[in-house]
Amino acid sequence: MFEAKLTESTTIKRVLDAIKDLIQQANFDCSADGLSLQAMDTPHVCLTTMTLRSQAFEVYRCDRPLSMGINLSSISKILKCAASKDSVKIVADDEGADCAEFIFENESADRIAHFELKLMDIDSEHLSIPEDSDYQAIISMPSAEYRRIFSDLSIIGDTITIEINKNTACFSVEGDIGNGSLNLAQTDSADEKNPVTINVKEPVKMTFPGKYLNTFTKAVPISEFVTLCLTDGNPLAIEFSLPDEAGFVRYFLAPKIDQ
C-alpha cells in the first residue's frame, strides 16, 4: 500500500511545473524515505531529478518500494483539477497497480474529488550521480535574480558562458543579433535581503545552452534561492530546494564543448 497526502496541492503542482517541459514521462519511485524521480530530456542534454521527502507529507505510508510510471502531461492535467489550497492524497496498490488514485479535498472538507491516473511501464535508464562532488565554484542567488538573468540573456542567443572568479560571476551571451553580458558581485552584507554568495576554489569558465537555463526558470516558484555548482568540464548542477528540507528539484546540464 502506498498512501501520501500533501496539505496543499501547491507543492506538487510547482514541482511538476518545474519538470514537465523537460520530461514527457518518468518513473516516480516511492520508498519509505519519500517520492523521487530521475529522467533525462529526449536529446540527453539535461538530467532532472526530484525528491519529495516523506516529511513533506502530512500522511506518508509506503509499505514496500514501488515505481509508478507516469506521463507528466497527464498528471498535470489531473492536478489542474485541484485548487491550490486543496489537499492531495495519492493512493496506489504496491502489487503491480495499473492506476494511481488522486483525491483532492478542500479546506472545509465538504468537496472531495477523485481521479484515477493510468500508470505506464517505462523502461528508463538510471544514471549514477556522484554524491560528494567537489565543485570548483558555487554561487547562490535569489531565484528571481536567476530568472531575470537567464530569461534576458536567452533572448539574445543560445550560447551562454558562465565565468566565476573571486567574488564575481559573469554571465555572457553570443547571438545572431549581437552579444551581452552581466556581472554579479557577491553582496557585502550578511543581512542583505537578497544575498548573492560566491564560493570559488578555482576560477571556472564554461558554456551552456541558454534554452535550458531559461527552461529551469520554471522551478523559480519552488524556492526563494537557487544554487549553481560548476566544475570545469562537468555538468552544471542547479538546485532549487523546497522549504523545510521537504525536497528539491535538481538539474544537471551538459556543457557545450570545443570541437
Binding site: 544514471l127 564543448i257 570541437q259
Partner: peptide, 12 residues
C-alpha cells in the same frame, strides 16, 4: 558543440 549528459554520469 553540445555534449551529452550520458557521457558524464554512468548508467546503473
Amino acid at each position: 558543440m553540445q555534449s551529452s549528459i550520458t557521457s558524464f554520469f554512468k548508467k546503473t
